[in-house]
């Protein structure tokens, strides 16, 4: 290709790069600086509410991966289900949140935490009491607006960086 004046386009492009020297940094240093996640974050664990759960296994049926396993017995006195065992294999879980959406009693939530790596495959299988909510296992507001309201506001990059022209 022939150009009449070679280098003008390159110089104009370098102007943009030069301007970036005086701009705010976009990245934050992760383990020290943490941004707030979305209130609806689907973290890599499930939270189970044993009081609300009726053992209807709607969550297990809706799971596309078959990661939830529930065993129940029928209580002859009240004719209701007793949950003997609920077991979630978080290794199979793809965090799609369909179980949370399907549950008619709001007894299952996605977790809000994302740093849940384990050293062994066996530790990924969580059952019964391990699934209950606790201060270090907060529930996320996915499909649950009343929980979402209490979580911290999400940090947005669009509000953090505002370029003045």
């Amino acid at each position: 290709m022939k150009f009449e004046r070679y280098g003008i386009g390159i110089a104009r492009g370098m102007m943009v790069t030069f301007k970036h020297l005086f701009r705010h940094p976009t990245v934050s240093q992760y383990p020290e600086q943490r941004l707030n996640m979305s209130r609806r974050t689907r973290g890599n664990e499930l939270i189970w509410n044993n009081v609300k759960c009726t053992g209807c296994v709607t969550c297990a049926k809706s799971c596309p991966q078959g990661a939830i396993h529930i065993e129940t017995t029928v209580d002859p006195a009240t004719n209701k289900y007793n949950v003997l065992k609920i077991e979630v294999d978080t290794g199979y879980c793809i965090q799609c949140g369909l179980c949370v959406e399907a549950c008619p009693y709001e007894a299952i939530y996605m977790g809000y935490s994302v740093e849940r790596a384990k050293y062994r495959r066996g530790e990924l299988v969580q059952a019964n009491e391990m699934l209950l909510a606790s201060p270090d296992r907060p529930a996320s507001g996915y499909m649950n607006p009343h929980i979402a309201r209490e979580l911290p506001r999400q940090t947005l990059l669009v509000e953090k960086i505002v370029e003045k022209r």
């Binding site: 976009t26 979305s38 609806r40 689907r42 949140g97 999400q154 947005l156 669009v158």
Partner: peptide, 25 residues
Amino acid sequence: LYMLREREKILDLFEMLSGQRLTYN
């Protein structure tokens, strides 16, 4: 990298809506 910066802002919006950044469902 300049373009990923703008993409990040969109992903923030998607995260706000759906809770995930890549596989929204």
